[in-house]
Structures are given as structure tokens and as C-alpha cells.
């Protein structure tokens, strides 16, 4: 039997689709889970350890806890931005996966990468507009949920 066009025979089609999906699943390679987990753990952990070292470094300069935390974040963000600009961050990410996405450096990368990518489309419609293609949703959902948390705190006060 030939494969049917999309809307040819609906009931037959459902079965054909599920049969095919099974066939695909049998053959599809799985991601190298153990290697990926190890990469994410080691590199993600290393970034956090660097963050801890930076916090301690700024604390030793007499900054308070909040200040040292903010300074450490800004430093990590700068380093991630620089590595993205140099084209190194995505090479590390190949091995680290979520290890380079989940830390604050991943947020920085998600802002710098499109800014860099679209500069050829100009400063306003390129860099300016595209900078938040990935970070925009993060800020939107972050702000809205935080606002709700604040609202609840206000009501419960």
C-alpha cells in the first residue's frame, strides 16, 4: 500500500501515523545521557564555584553580602559576554549543555548572542530589537510571578 496523503483516509491515517512513530522511536538514537549529565554537573558546578570565589573576593574588599553577590553576578555576566563575543561560549556549551544555560552566565549568553548575531541588521532593528528575543520571556515571566508573590505578601501582611 502506498502512503496516503494527509487528509486521504482519516481513520487509516491515525494508525499509519502511530505505526510510523513506533518505527521512528525504535531507530532514533538517544542522547548520551550520562555524558551530558556529567558535563552539566562539572561545568555548571565549576561556574557556581567561581561565583563563590568571586563573592568571597568582593567580601574581602569590605562589600556587604548583597553587594558582593551583585558584584559577583556582574563579573560572571561580563565573563560570559566576553566569551560569547570571542565565540568560545558556544563551544563550551556543546559539552556542558544545561551547565552553561542554567547559571546566570546562560542568561548573559542569551542576551549577547542575538545582539551579536543581528548587528548586521543595524543598531535599532538588529542589536536593539533582537537582544531580548530569548531574555525577554525570562524577564516577563520572572517579573509577573515575582509581582504575584509580592501581591500575596501584601495581602497576607
Amino acid at each position: 500500500m502506498l502512503l496516503k496523503g494527509k487528509k486521504a483516509i482519516p481513520s487509516d491515517r491515525k494508525q499509519q501515523e502511530s505505526e510510523y512513530r513506533e518505527m521512528v522511536n525504535r531507530i532514533k538514537p538517544k542522547p548520551p545521557l550520562l555524558r551530558n549529565i556529567l558535563g552539566a554537573f562539572v561545568i555548571g558546578g565549576a561556574i557556581c564555584t567561581l561565583g563563590q570565589a568571586l563573592i568571597n573576593f568582593y567580601l574581602s574588599f569590605g562589600l556587604d553580602k548583597t553587594g558582593a553577590g551583585a558584584a559577583a553576578s556582574a563579573t560572571l555576566i561580563f565573563l560570559a559576554a566576553l566569551l560569547t563575543g570571542l565565540g568560545i561560549y558556544d563551544s563550551i556549551a556543546k559539552y556542558a549543555g544545561a551547565g552553561t544555560i542554567v547559571p546566570i552566565t546562560g542568561f548573559a549568553n542569551s542576551i549577547v548572542a542575538p545582539a551579536l548575531e543581528y548587528r548586521r541588521e543595524g543598531m535599532v532593528f538588529g542589536v536593539g530589537q533582537k537582544m531580548f528575543t530569548l531574555a525577554g520571556p525570562v524577564l516577563i515571566f520572572g517579573f509577573v510571578t515575582a509581582w504575584i508573590a509580592g501581591l500575596i505578601a501584601y495581602i497576607l501582611k
Binding site: 542522547p31 555548571g44 558546578g45 557556581c48 561565583g51 549543555g97 542554567v102
Partner: peptide
């Protein structure tokens, strides 16, 4: 820190990348 990153990795790998880095962020 590494453990939190591993959670992100599992979310991507175990959903065969239906969850993208954007979703993780």
C-alpha cells in the same frame, strides 16, 4: 550548583529536546 544544572539537563534530554534552552531559562 552542578546538581541544579543536572535537573535542567534531564529536562532537555528526557523530553528529546522538546524543552529548549529558552524554556529552561
Amino acid at each position: 550548583g552542578g546538581g541544579i544544572c543536572v535537573i535542567g539537563q534531564l529536562l532537555m534530554d528526557l523530553t528529546s529536546y522538546k524543552i529548549t534552552p529558552a524554556h529552561i531559562l
